[in-house]
Design a protein around this nucleic acid. Structure first.
Lengths: 348, 348
DNA sequence: TTGAAAGCGCTAACAC
DNA sequence: GTGTTAGCGCTTTCAA
């Protein structure tokens, strides 16, 4: 049998409550008894039972991570491990552990969150995505449970602490970059339109197009899933058009990789025939052929700040709602080139 | 206040234990009372408190994941997210959640594991690596705590359920492949020599070299960390030699990427000047320039089986110790080429 | 400065 | 079938 607080108390000739106070390093216990109790602890190889403590305490020192559509899909996109790296770092600094449920469908994920919250398994939650009209957000808000969103909340922006990039501006900037390079037929390949990030990037793209006085064409907007295969499907649609685009804004590096593959299969050269820019700057984007010009959104930082702020929220429920914007940066690489009507000139 | 089992009991006019039995769907409760209790539950919006249940139950329905040297480093290598994908899938099928501690140093990681085990925060543990002379393994074994290792235990192989590849054979095969292509100066770039996987791969390499009657040269063996930078450092050493190798066996795709980079910087062409094979077949290896010939070790499956088997162990402590070997497969891509003394001929 | 005792919310004997 | 009751191991008033 494993030693409990009672065993320690008995051995040290004190009450269990005293042992508890020693664990918490309560200053009102004399150094002498502290010493005696500590000796008893090591003698018995005592370690506190976290679960029991959690029950008495109503706190778990763990934060929950919620991933869209099941870890076993999402982890295919390097974005997620990278945010989790950041979260892990932030949680570590405050001595928090990480907890993930493993639901696959939306219903199961919801179920998992309810279990985390209602079952008191975690003290706070980081939502790794923001969906339009999200039930989860609504639930968490209703329960008044500490949580932060990585991304921009669809609504109630002023009620939810969130860590985000300025995706609108970032998308606008990359599109402008393409336009400055002389491109006039710029298409947008986005991910799931239910994700707020997709919407933001699309809006930024649109703004840049309109600002430049270019035509905003519906058939230049394609949506697919945030995976390699998504990118491939999108390209096929776009290059069936009479006037195919000369540049592509792709909402995610992994999709861009699919785009690159498909373009290659179709014998279309990047960057000579078509320029490509994308988002995230995951390791792949540096390695791809050609290396992708992409927006570094500082994924790690996104996770790190999210963790820090849920914990703040947990430890002080009155902590004000915050909006943290992580800076982005365009990483120019070899997937973009100047476009002069029918001629291709020097690289950027 | 949140509803407890007592509230439900009161409203349904039954004893708390009856409610508990309804939750567990105990067959000895009449359908009628079950119905009544369930109504009371929904009316009160009742959800069981997992922590309280865990305490009474001595079970958490969660399995712990232990990563070498902190998540925030390890996750840089795509191996880890990929195993976790598998674990997540396996855990999900049995309705288990995942728990990770966030230690950074060895001591902190040990501390985290002790907290998981002693604090009863998880029912079982998956160790995502196997180190020579590992304290963690020793501890877990001593505590008789359910755990499985992804990899080959350094010792006590017959006492520890583990999920592994036949890394020895895999390394032997890829080295033989290189030798068949005509290479006679084949070097080995390994990772941390404390990791059993490194040792196994090195031994397989050695065996192939000796079998072929080639000279086994110490200066052809270099070790670095399992990251991109590791690969780069290794190359610099190797190509300072008088007789630099014409082929490289690299113990990890990510390192291989670093190798590729560095070789490129040095103006050494792959595969024309030197052939490269590596291990893991992570997504990067397909995308790199040139695409890497690598051993697919089926990372996802490794994780999936590991999860399935810890859970089995948790649910039946008498479940026999097992050794699960996941098959591997050489993925031939464009980083290898035939070598004929001073000439290079057609590709493989 | 320390102890006694109640309680966190649930489960599992043991009764009936 | 269902209720009673004693824990699970800890924290936290309240008293002394």
């Amino acid at each position: 049998m494993v030693a409990t607080i009672k065993d320690v108390a008995r051995l040290a000739n004190v009450a269990p409550s005293t042992v508890s106070r020693v664990i918490a390093n309560n200053p009102r216990i004399s150094e002498k008894t502290k010493e005696r109790v500590r000796e008893a602890m090591t003698e018995l190889g005592y370690h506190p039972n976290f679960i029991a403590r959690s029950l008495a305490n109503q706190s778990t020192q763990a934060i929950g991570i919620v991933i869209p559509g099941s870890a076993d899909k999402a982890f295919l996109n390097p974005f997620f491990p990278e945010v989790i790296r950041g979260i892990s770092k932030g949680a570590h600094q405050k001595h928090y552990a990480l907890h993930m449920s493993t639901g696959e469908t939306d219903a199961e994920i919801m179920e998992g969150v309810v279990q985390m919250v209602e079952g008191k398994r975690v003290d706070g939650i980081v939502l790794l995505y923001s969906q339009v009209d999200d039930k989860l957000t609504k639930y968490l808000l209703l329960k008044n449970f500490p949580f932060v969103i990585v991304g921009k909340p669809f609504k109630d922006v002023e009620l939810i602490t969130h860590v985000d990039n300025d995706n609108y501006r970032a998308a606008k900037e990359v599109t402008e970059h393409l336009i400055e390079l002389g491109h006039e037929r710029v298409a947008f390949i986005g991910g799931n339109l239910k994700l707020v990030v997709t919407v933001e990037r699309l809006l930024g793209y649109e703004k840049a197009i309109r600002n430049a006085g270019l035509e905003y064409r519906d058939d230049y907007i394609v949506h697919a899933q945030f995976l390699k295969e998504g990118g491939q499907a999108a390209v096929q649609e776009l290059f069936k058009l009479n006037e195919p685009p000369t540049a592509l804004v792709v909402a995610d590096d992994l999709m861009a990789l699919g785009v690159l593959n498909m373009l290659d299969d179709m014998g279309i050269n990047v960057p000579n025939d078509v320029s490509v820019v994308s988002f995230n700057n995951v390791m792949l984007s540096e390695v791809s052929r050609p290396p992708l010009t992409t927006v570094d959104i500082n994924i790690f930082q996104l996770g790190y700040e999210a963790a820090k702020h849920v914990i703040q929220l947990v430890e002080d429920p009155l902590d004000p709602i915050k909006r943290i914007i992580i800076p982005h940066k365009l990483m120019k690489r070899q997937s973009c080139i100047e476009y002069h009507s029918k001629k291709k000139l020097h690289q950027e």
